[in-house]
Structures are given as C-alpha cells and as structure tokens.
Design a protein around this nucleic acid. Structure first.
Lengths: 266, 266
DNA sequence: CGTAGTGTTGAATTGAATCAAGTGTCGTGG
DNA sequence: CCACGACACTTGATTCAATTCAACACTACG
C-alpha cells in the first residue's frame, strides 16, 4: 500500500554515509520517503516526537509537512525570508550561513538528521541566516504557528520544544568558548569529536563517516582559513589520530583527540 | 504602605549608572525594592510580561520570587547546579562564565536589566555556566516548572517565551560570526555598540555609561587578552570615536564606530 | 576531456598574544 | 583618615600562531 513510489530503493539516514551505516532501510522508514510518518520514523526517539505518546505523535504528524527532497545546493530558506516554519532534518545535511556586505560568508551551523533548523527566526519573524542542503536531503517542515498551537495543547510537546531551544542555546555558548579560547588544532579536534557523537546519536558510525561539508565550510564555521583546516587535518593524520581521504574520515584515536582539548574541557 | 523599608533612597535601573540615568525613582518602582510587582515594574514592557494583559501579568506575578539583592561578586548559581529557575535582571548586571580545567575562565555573556538569565540549563537540567553579579544587583526568580505550567495556560506567555529563547539563539549566532571573523577592533566596536543599544532599551543613555565589567571580562568575552582590549580602547580614543576614563565610557561618534564594522554588517 | 571547484603545501607576513614593567584605583583595617 | 595591599589598567618590546599570497594536484562532472 504505502510504498516506494516516489523514492524507492535503499537509503540511509545520511545519503553520503550509505557506505558506513549499519542497518538496512525498510520501505516505510526510508528517510527519503515523504510518506514516512513521525510514528514510523526511525528518528522519532531523537526528534520532536520524543516524550510524546502515540496519540500525541499522531497529532504532531498532522501538522508536519513532508516536502520533496532537496538537491545539493538547494536553499531551505534565505536570510531575511519571512519566518514561517522550523524544519527537522530527516536525511542528509545542511549548513546555515550569513553573507556579509564584503561578500565573505560565515557558516553558523551544520545540521544533521534529527536536528532542528530555523529557530533563529522565531524572535524577529525573519530568518537570520540562509540554509542550504550540503547533499541530497529531506526535511520535515513544521509550521511554527501550528507547532505553538499544538504545544499549547500538549504540555509534553511544549516542554520538549523548550528543551530543544535550551539545548541550542547551551550548544551555541559552548561554541562561544571554543571560538574565543581554542587554538586551531583544538577547534578542529573538537569539531570532529562533535560530528562523531552526532553521527553516533543517529546510529551511524562515530569513527568512520563522510564529511558533508567542504574544508572551506569547516573553516568558516571554526573561524579559520581553508589552508589552516587542511594543515591541521594533515597534522592530526601525522599524529595518527585520524585518517582523512578527501571527505572520507576515520577517527583512529578518539581518546587522543579528546586529550588535545583535555585541559580546556569543563 | 508599601515602601522603602528594605531599600530606601533613590535607585536606578543600573546602580553603577546612577549618574547617567534620566528619571527619578518613585518608591513602588524602585528596582531594588523587592515588593515591586511585574505590573508596576518599569521594565514590564521589555521583560517577561510583554504582551500579557493585566490579569495575565497578575498570574505571572504570583510565581515570580523577588529575592534579596545580590552584592558584587555574589553568585546567582554555579556551573552544574541543578536547574530550577530562570532569572530576570531587575537592576545591576551579571556575567556568565565557564571555568576550564586549566583554570582559565571564559565569559559567555553579560546580562543587563530586563534580560533573562539561565536558559542554558533548560535542556540538561543543570546550568552550563556560573553567573555572578558585577555590581549590587537585584533579580526576579522565575521557577521554571511554574513558568512552564503558566505558559501552558497563557498562550501569550508561551509565545513570548519562545520568542525570548529564539532571540537568545539569534544573538548567540551573531556572536559566532563576530568571533569567527572580526578583528580585535571590530569586536570591540561591536561590543560597545551592543552595550549602547541595550542601555538605550532600558532608557539609559546610549552614549554615556559605566562599564560594569573589567577589561579582562571584556577580553574573555570577545576572545581577546586584557592588553589587547586596553590597546583598542586607547586606539578608539585616539580616533575620537569614544572617550574612556576607567569604567566611564562615552561614545562620541556612533556612526564612526559603526563604520568600523560596516563591511561586515549583514 | 576540459574546466571549475576543492584540497594541499610552502614561504612570507602580520595581528594579537605573551612577557615585562610599570601606574592608577579601590576597599580595608589600623 | 590615611596607608597598605590587591587588583585593574596601560604601554612597550618581542614572539608566535594563523593568515595571506602563491603555486600546484586532485576530483568530479557536464
């Protein structure tokens, strides 16, 4: 009945990480399949539905719009667009960035499956940055007005959305510390460890993954130049902490990486 | 009846800025007076009560605890303390900071009257940083569980608290950009302009104010050393953009300051 | 198969940090 | 009320981590 009409065949949480994922995709949980419901979505333990019961998840399902997948480079929205929705990444990955007058862009965040995009627009009713797919990706759109209305009916959902926003705030403050006091090597190590645990969160390998972003994106995010990022990658390889082949990345010594930033850890 | 028993005499939104404020303080709106209600608080147009009607403000008043003032250096809470409440600054100012293993602290934020503290603890149920009064200050404590319950009853309050959190997220992302791409001079100019508009928000002079924090605090916040902050202050004075005498600060050419970061502006 | 984008590496430069030596300011106790 | 000590701030000389400039290799894709 429900099936693979639109996007048949196997798929993984992250298209670029097909080679590294563990499980197989069964039709109704295929992350590229727009018919997947929150109830059956493999991310429902990490995404908005967390802590909701069956009937609540069903209500959430009603307001979620499962748009067609985005191609690499497609924009989810652009800076100053009117804020209408937040988005949950179902598969693939995104970068958020701002463009300054001088043409230079700065990446403000990367978003992986199960993560929520667009909360920077809630206050001003306009998105503060542009957000672009880094690879073939699919998202769930959650119209914010409806999310608010539903949150008002479901205390669990309100509680959880406060938590998601609080988490974003805490995470942003960690990055503040990183940018204001870490060296290039510490930033890069911390970035890789962060990616690692975010992949682990969605049951992908924490030690082998494909970077969906360019070195330049990483540099813009970490406040470094492309050249520095490249050099640090080389240096970390020489220390046998990682192995990088283009985008393919292996963390060979996670403890060693952690040790690099050890004294800075809270 | 209600009066100045606990804290008589004149007071201003920011104790350290008494010399610069415009209006006088009448008893029931004195920010150091613990008996001030949200309804009569001079900050109620900027703080949590915004967008609430009279009856709603009254309900909010019921859950707000107006603690005794904090002395300079007193902690509101410490890193890893159990999260229980968010706090609204009524008067004075605070800094939030994290301490790393190596003993170095990094300031993650400054909080002025009308601003909300503690949202970093919502997700993990533990505060992610320590928060300390920079001067004699008073706060309104808002137990979060009760705020959630009340938000559930008052859609306006829910909406507004989502907005407050969204604003914090947007602000943190701006700082991300600042830290990852601004020079020392641009960071410092941006910092002063930010303070200026935050003072303006609470009807204090945007061009003359006392800095509640040390040069070292500023440096830790902006990712610079004390020495660099000091040098930049001197340089900005030489350019006639500001005049600084210890903590007393005057912005002499706000356009000129803005021009320094012009090409980086969104 | 060529071209644009992505990534690496080297050499020179530089902005901010570090190291160092002061002066200024404030709060406290004698 | 003044003297003392601790902290806050400033300025200068030197160093260094990361940027900039430059050249080239790799890859991916129409």
């Amino acid at each position: 009945m429900s099936g693979t009409e639109i996007n048949g065949g196997p798929a993984a949480v992250s298209a670029s990480n097909i080679a590294f994922r563990s499980g197989d995709c069964i039709e109704e949980t295929c992350p590229h399949n727009p018919k997947v419901s929150c109830a059956s979505c493999r991310l429902n333990k990490l995404c908005l539905p967390i802590a909701l019961n069956k009937s609540e998840i069903h209500q959430l399902d009603e307001i979620v719009e499962r748009n067609r997948p985005l191609k690499k480079g497609d924009h989810l929205y652009r800076q100053n667009d009117e804020f209408k929705s937040v988005y949950a990444v179902r598969s693939g990955s995104f970068k958020a960035y701002v463009l300054s007058d001088n043409g230079l862009g700065r990446v403000t965040g990367f978003y992986l499956p199960g993560e929520i995009i667009g909360m920077d627009g809630i206050a001003s009713h306009h998105y503060a940055n542009s957000t672009q797919a880094l690879e073939h990706s699919s998202i769930c759109e959650i119209p914010f007005a409806q999310l608010e209305k539903l949150s008002h009916q479901l205390p669990n959902l309100q509680h959880h959305f406060f938590a998601i926003m609080g988490n974003e705030i805490a995470k942003d403050q960690q990055i503040h510390t990183l940018l204001s006091s870490y060296t290039a090597e510490e930033r890069t190590a911390s970035f890789l460890l962060g990616l690692s645990s975010r992949y682990a969160r969605v049951s992908l390998s924490p030690t082998r993954f494909l970077l969906p972003m360019t070195r330049s994106d990483i540099g813009e995010y970490l406040g470094l130049t492309v050249e520095t990022v490249s050099r640090i990658f080389t240096a970390l390889q020489r220390k046998d902490l990682i192995a990088v082949n283009n985008r393919e990345t292996e963390i060979k010594d996670i403890k060693g990486l952690r040790a690099l930033i050890g004294s800075k850890a809270a």
